[in-house]
């Protein structure tokens, strides 16, 4: 009798457990508030990195769940989680990847928040060029600040493992943002330290282009100094400020003068 009752209870337990499993998937997923950073630091003690890893896994599971709530409903909690992870374990590179992919695109305010995370990470992980790339990308693509992006990307050139193209990208963005002097000085530094002959030739060609553009820039500043206004077009610089306008048009850059700013833009592909 007792054995029969035990067997019945066991079967009931298994069947209820299986039913409960199905119900759980219908529940709406939610990213709960996290404890304050200080409390995490106190409770975690020596295992703070493990706590950070656990919170990271929690965020990954949430972002991988379906259906995901609207991003505006969870973005603030998500950012708080990233702050906690960074406070406990700033060396965890996966957190930066995740914050870049999940938060930077939402709005300009969120992009700025992600950039703050990246800035702290850049200070802690001095050999990680990827954080500079993420920050620079955010500044260029989401915040529309190519000059700022150029500065960030160029700062990564101090890191030994930084790929060459990052420095080149910095000069392209500097040119796009109108930071011709900065772009020229970076090009000269890269030309001086480059050992590859072909790459050196490419830098030399770009230096010539930037120097031509800088001539025009100086003439523009001279014009502004005398007339107190920027010229409407570059042709007004000739002949008082420039003998002739240098020709800058080719595969690499096109000269552009608009909204009182001189830029070198990449030509649009046909």
């Amino acid at each position: 009798m007792w054995r029969f009752l035990f067997f019945l209870m066991f079967c009931l337990y298994i069947s209820l457990a299986l039913l409960q499993g199905d119900k759980k998937t219908l529940k709406e997923v939610k990213l709960e508030n996290t404890m304050p950073i200080g409390l995490h630091q106190v409770v975690s003690s020596y295992a703070r990195q493990l706590f950070a890893d656990a919170i990271y896994i929690k965020v990954v599971v949430f972002l991988g769940s379906k259906p995901l709530p609207k991003v505006d409903d969870y973005k603030n909690n998500l950012y708080q989680h990233f702050l906690v992870i960074q406070a406990l374990h700033p060396q965890l590179i996966d957190m930066y990847y995740l914050s870049e992919s999940s938060l930077s695109w939402v709005s300009k305010a969120d992009t700025l928040r992600v950039n703050e995370l990246m800035s702290v990470g850049m200070a802690k992980k001095t050999e990680e060029w990827l954080l500079y790339f993420f920050k620079g990308f955010n500044e260029f693509y989401y915040l529309q600040e190519p000059a700022e992006a150029a500065r960030t990307l160029y700062a990564s050139s101090a890191i030994e493992s930084t790929p060459l193209w990052l420095g080149s990208l910095a000069t392209v963005l500097a040119a796009k943002g109108g930071e011709l002097r900065a772009g020229l000085s970076w090009l000269k530094v890269m030309w001086g330290s480059e050992t590859d002959v072909d790459q050196k030739k490419r830098y030399a060609r770009d230096i010539v282009t930037f120097e031509k553009a800088l001539l025009i820039q100086v003439a523009l500043e001279h014009f502004k100094g005398i007339h107190q206004v920027w010229p409407e077009s570059l042709s007004e610089l000739v002949p008082d400020f420039l003998v002739e306008l240098p020709v800058i048009k080719g595969d690499q850059y096109d000269l552009s003068y608009a909204n009182e700013q001189l830029r070198l833009l990449r030509p649009k592909r046909k």
């Binding site: 896994i57 599971v61 060396q91 996966d94 990847y97």
Partner: peptide
């Protein structure tokens, strides 16, 4: 769950 810092 870790895409990059598995060692860490």
């Amino acid at each position: 769950f870790f895409g990059h810092d598995i060692g860490r």
